[in-house]
Amino acid sequence: MTSRQPIRATDRLSSSEIDDVLALAAAAAEADGVYPLSEDVVLRVRNGGGTHHLAPGGVGYAFLEDGAGELVVHPGHRRRGIGTDLLAAAGPGPLRFWAHGDDPGAAAFAERAGFTRDRVLWQMRRSLLEPLPEIPLPEGVTVRGFRPGHDEQAWLGVNSRAFAHHPEQGRWTLDDLLAREREPWFDPAGFLLAVDVTGTLVGFHWTKVHPAEGTDPALGEIYVLGVDPAGHRRGLGAALSVEGLRHLAAAGLTRSNLYVDESNAAAVALYRRLGFTVFKTDISYRR
């Protein structure tokens, strides 16, 4: 009986390892109907950061940073202890892992490993062919596009205050923002900034366009929407939501999506009023 080869850990993947991880994720997506890695983890795969755990032969991968991560095992190599090995490599102590899609297999694996269901993230969608409500911007507020090389620090300040209690979004750094500015989907014209009469940034609606894939049409996403609590203006979030959705519709998109925590009652209520309904569910499991 041969012993299983150890899991390898690194903070930066080689070009061949990047290809292996993305191929593994694609195989899992084809088998499961949902992509197993978040955008943030894919950016870390390509650019480094965090800790990457690799099972031999490219059959398993886990990402870990600040006690949270994601894990995927190749569909042809499941139920062989690879997921358990990846969890063991992550070490003891408190840990959170995201499972994309509310899959019974992931739930059963999490329970066996001593994890409990902790957070629920909804993907919500609506048609952009349906009318949007008329919600004017507050008096004295105008909207303009993001200016790369000029607006980064102001945006980071508003983002950190708007998402001070959010475990992922609120900790974004300049490197996180610049990494997205280098992505092919980045469009400063769709990164809408709300400013007051002094030019101070008071809120934003960053949109993102996902290209058509197979039989699925292109999607226009409410990527990040935030209002500075230091200068809160009643109704700005709703008005910015509509501004961004109108921008996406004007670009020819017919469907929109967004991600929101199930527990964020105010945001969920806003999006339901705007016609969004739950399309998919992601689960965070905690040990």
Rank of each mutant, 00 (worst) to 15 (best):
D19K: 13
D20V: 10
D20F: 01
D20W: 13
D20Y: 01
D20H: 08
V21Y: 06
V21M: 02
L22I: 00
A23F: 02
A23C: 06
A23M: 12
A23V: 04
L24N: 04
L24Q: 06
L24Y: 07
A25V: 01
A25P: 03
A25G: 05
A25D: 07
A26T: 13
A26Y: 01
A26H: 08
A27V: 03
A27W: 08
A29S: 10
A29N: 08
E30P: 01
E30D: 06
A31D: 14
D32G: 01
D32I: 02
D32E: 11
D32Q: 12
D32C: 04
G33N: 09
G33D: 12
G33W: 07
V34S: 13
V34E: 15
V34Q: 15
Y35F: 14
Y35R: 02
P36E: 14
P36D: 04
L37A: 10
E39V: 14
D40L: 12
D40A: 13
V41G: 02
V41L: 10
V41A: 04
V41F: 11
V42M: 07
R44D: 08
R44H: 14
V45K: 11
V45Q: 07
R46P: 14
R46N: 09
R46T: 14
R46V: 09
N47M: 13
G48I: 07
G48A: 06
G49P: 00
G50P: 06
G50R: 10
G50M: 05
T51S: 07
T51W: 04
T51Q: 05
L54Q: 01
L54F: 02
L54A: 01
L54W: 06
A55P: 13
A55H: 14
A55T: 08
P56G: 07
P56C: 11
G57F: 13
G57P: 15
G57Q: 13
G58W: 13
V59E: 15
V59K: 15
V59H: 15
G60E: 04
G60F: 00
G60W: 05
A62M: 09
F63N: 03
F63M: 01
F63I: 05
L64Q: 03
L64N: 06
L64D: 11
